[in-house]
Amino acid sequence: MNRSWSFIAGVLATILFSMMGLIFVPNWQFEQLKPVVDQNGISHPTPPAGSVLLGREVYISEGCLYCHSQQVRSADFGADIQRGWGTRRSVARDYIFDRPHLMGTMRTGPDLENIGARQPSREWQYLHLFNPQITSPGSIMPPFHFLFKVVDKGGPAPVGSVDLTANASPTKKASYLVPSGRAQDLVDFLMSLNHSYDLPEAHQ
C-alpha cells in the first residue's frame, strides 16, 4: 500500500519539475515583457483586434499553421533572413499578444512572420488563396475556392473584387474574383503579420 504512494510521489515529482522549468518559469519571464512604443506612439507588437482577430480564426480553422511557421531564425542559423522572411530574428516579445501561439513546426510553405511586409499586395493574396497556381505555378498549397465567388465580367466590378484573367478563371472567361468576408479577414490578418520593428534582445 505504502509503496504505490511513494511510487506516485516519485512519478509526480519528475513531471512537476519539468512543468516548473518549461512552463512556469518561462511564463514568468515572458509576463514581464512589454510592447515597445515607436515615435508615432504605436506599440509593437500591436494587439490584434477586429477583422485581424477574425482572420486569425480563419487561419486556424483552415489549418494554415501545419505548413507555415511564424518565426524567423537568426542570421547565423538558417537562411530565413537572407530569404527575406524578416529583418531580424523573432523573440518572445513578438508573441506577447498571441492566443494561441502560431509558431508552427513545418515549412512546407515559406515562413509568414512578416508576410505583410514582404507581400503587401492584397490582390496577390486573394489570387494566391483562390488558387496558388495563378501566382506560384508548381505550388502544393491547397486552393481555397470556397472562400471566394467568381463573377463573370459584364456588370460593374463588385466591391473589393480583383480581376481574374481568362486563364486563371475556372469559367475560362475574364471574371471578377469576389472574396468572401472570411477571405477578407484572413488577408487582413496576413497583412498584419509585420514584425519589421526592432527589439534590443533580438541582437543578443
Binding site: 506516485i8 512519478v11 509526480l12 513531471i15 512543468m19 518549461l22 512552463i23 518561462p26 511564463n27 515572458f30 515583457l33 518572445a92 508573441y95 506577447i96 499578444f97 498571441d98 492566443r99 494561441p100 501561439h101 509558431m103
Partner: peptide, 28 residues
C-alpha cells in the same frame, strides 16, 4: 498518472489565461 496531468495542464493553463504568448508554445 502522467497522462491526466499532462493533458489537463496543457489545456487548462492556457485556456484559463495563466499561460500565454511564447510560453504557450513551450507548454504546447
Amino acid at each position: 498518472v502522467w497522462f491526466p496531468i499532462l493533458y489537463s495542464a496543457a489545456i487548462l493553463l492556457p485556456t484559463t489565461g495563466m499561460v500565454g504568448g511564447a510560453a504557450w508554445a513551450t507548454t504546447n
